[in-house]
């Protein structure tokens, strides 16, 4: 079972810290597929944070496919998809490089590019599809 901890001064929003800790735990094998994440109430009891923060983190993890939130039962770790093939990574990197050149030509600096990219990435899946 995972135990969350918080770094309040890290500048990283709380929900994101929880998300990262779950991802890390899955990567390291602390959490295996089928394991249940602590309930919202349990997290709230141990960290004294807003339950909405926990809900948000779990929702994010659900959207990313890391966990599966089952109403009334709990939140469980999913079977993880296989890692990306080297070809896929190469292809994506090339596309990104092309995009970056285009953006620089349009006048965006590195920070602006990162902001725009981050904005798009955080959009919910539904909107991305449309």
């Amino acid at each position: 079972m995972i135990e969350f901890h918080l770094e309040s001064r890290s500048g990283v929003p709380t929900y994101l810290q929880l998300v990262q800790q779950v991802r890390q735990a899955v990567r390291l094998g602390i959490l295996s597929p089928g394991d249940q994440l602590p309930t919202v109430k349990e997290v709230v009891s141990s960290l004294a944070i807003n339950p909405n923060t926990v809900l948000r983190a779990y929702r994010e993890l659900d959207l990313e496919g890391v966990v599966d939130g089952r109403r009334g039962v709990g939140t469980f770790v999913r079977e993880q998809p296989p890692p990306l093939s080297a070809d896929a990574v190469k292809r994506l990197r090339a596309e990104l490089t092309r995009w970056a050149a285009e953006a620089r030509a349009a006048g965006l600096d590195a920070d602006a590019m990162a902001a725009l990219f981050g904005d798009v990435v955080r959009t919910p899946a539904a909107r991305r599809v449309a």
């Binding site: 309040s8 709380t14 919202v40 109430k41 709230v44 009891s45 944070i49 807003n50 339950p51 909405n52």
Partner: peptide
């Protein structure tokens, strides 16, 4: 704050709290 948040997680309640301690507020308030 733990007791307060547990009550919030049970749902159906709105909380307004005034405080000087910003670190607390950041964990607990939305």
């Amino acid at each position: 704050l733990t007791m307060l948040m547990e009550a919030v997680s049970e749902g159906g309640i709105t909380v307004v709290l005034s405080s000087h301690i910003l670190a607390d507020l950041e964990r607990v308030c939305d």
